[in-house]
Computed example of a mutant assay.
Amino acid sequence: MSIFLGRRALLGSLPFAALPARAQEAFPSRPITIVNAYAAGGQTDIATRLTADRLGTAIGQRVVVENRVGGATSIASTLVAQARPDGHTLLAGTSSLAINPTLQPRLTPRDPQAELAPVGMVYRGAFVFHIFPGVPATTLPEFIAYAKANPGQLNYGGVVGTVVHLAMQMLCQRAGIEMTAVPNRGGVEGLLDLQAGRIHCNFQSPVEAMPSLQEGKTRALAISSRERLANLPDVPTVAETLPGFEAVLWMALFAPAGTPAPVIEKLAAALGTVTGSEDYRSRMARIGLTAETGGPSEVQALLAADTVNWRKVITEAGIQN
């Protein structure tokens, strides 16, 4: 037997484990996709695209946004939960991940805390509580007093099961008032209903509410976050009247459960660079959002706390969808 054949035979008899392991695929090795559950052109979509553009620069790979609307956001979140856990498919996850397990338990993922891996925070967005000018109230305490004197006579709008709808339910619960929900398709439709007096009050994003407030078509009474808004500094928070009240829409990035820790860490570090930059924070503020820094542990804690909070609101109100 030749020396060559002898060596080949010897190599062939060695256990597979003794051969050099193939180097792990570098991350990211191809473009990253952020799946967004909301329609193109809206506030959430604008924020997602701004984040994707900056994240691509920070991580050194192209990041694209794919809109998968429908199923009360479950189409997008299910797609990501079932994607290959390699960090190349991410979810622009919002507060709906904390709402759906209670409101629509048949939707997937049934347990976002187990089926998705948090990467990092993107933003928090407060809502403006504004009213039809024909309602005789200029402050939130006056509005609550009027609602108590006229139980069931005031209407509010919103898409059933959204943060806006649940925020109104929580306001009613905390203030001890009774109002009637008038479902709509959200956003523009809700604003038009409010301006026309078909509904009497609503929570809406600052971007949606500001033009109406400036034109005097609606009147701002309160802000849903615990801090006042920089662009509406004279409008108090709901919490200043009802201590502890907070209802915000948040967004964070998530990967499929099982994504390797080093990949999550790299994504979180790049995202933190984006959300911590002054230019990004300024751009987000222009569309009424507050950029948030925070890694996987902060996102996990927020999702867990919000799930408990909205479960209580949904259960007490007896909401079914």
Rank of each mutant, 00 (worst) to 15 (best):
M1H: 05
F4I: 11
L5N: 14
G6A: 09
S13C: 15
L14V: 05
P15I: 13
A18M: 11
A18V: 12
R22Q: 10
P28A: 09
R30P: 05
I32H: 01
Y38A: 07
Y38T: 11
G41R: 05
G42I: 09
I46Y: 01
A47R: 01
D53S: 08
R54N: 06
T57M: 08
A58R: 10
I59E: 01
I59R: 00
R62D: 08
V65A: 06
V69K: 09
V69L: 06
V69W: 05
G70P: 09
I75S: 06
A76P: 02
S77P: 00
T78K: 04
Q82W: 01
R84W: 00
R84T: 15
G87E: 03
G87Q: 03
L91C: 06
A92F: 15
A92I: 02
S95I: 14
I99K: 04
T102V: 07
L103R: 04
R106E: 15
R106G: 11
L107T: 00
T108R: 13
T108M: 10
T108N: 08
P109R: 00
P109F: 01
P109C: 01
R110L: 02
P112Y: 01
A114R: 14
P118W: 02
V119R: 03
Y123M: 14
R124N: 14
G125V: 00
F132V: 07
F132G: 00
F132L: 02
V135N: 07
T138Y: 02
T138I: 03
T138F: 03
T139K: 07
L140G: 14
F143W: 13
I144P: 11
P151A: 03
L154S: 11
L154W: 13
N155G: 07
G157A: 15
G157E: 03
H165Q: 10
L166M: 05
L166N: 07
A167L: 04
Q169C: 10
M170S: 09
L171D: 08
C172W: 01
Q173G: 14
Q173Y: 15
Q173N: 13
G176N: 09
I177L: 13
V182S: 10
V182W: 01
R185H: 13
R185L: 13
R185I: 12
G187M: 03
L192A: 07
L192N: 05
Q195R: 12
A196W: 00
C201S: 15
C201Y: 13
C201F: 15
F203D: 05
F203E: 03
Q204G: 13
S205W: 04
V207R: 11
L213K: 07
L213R: 04
I223S: 04
S224V: 08
S224D: 10
S225E: 07
R228V: 13
L229I: 06
L229S: 05
L229M: 15
V235M: 06
V238K: 09
T241F: 12
F245E: 06
F245Q: 11
A257L: 08
A257D: 10
G258F: 09
V263K: 13
A268K: 07
A269W: 06
G272E: 15
G276E: 01
G276V: 09
E278W: 05
Y280C: 07
S282D: 12
M284W: 09
A285Q: 12
R286G: 12
G295L: 05
G295V: 07
S297G: 02
E298P: 05
Q300P: 03
L303C: 13
W310S: 04
K312V: 10
V313R: 06
V313N: 04
N321H: 07
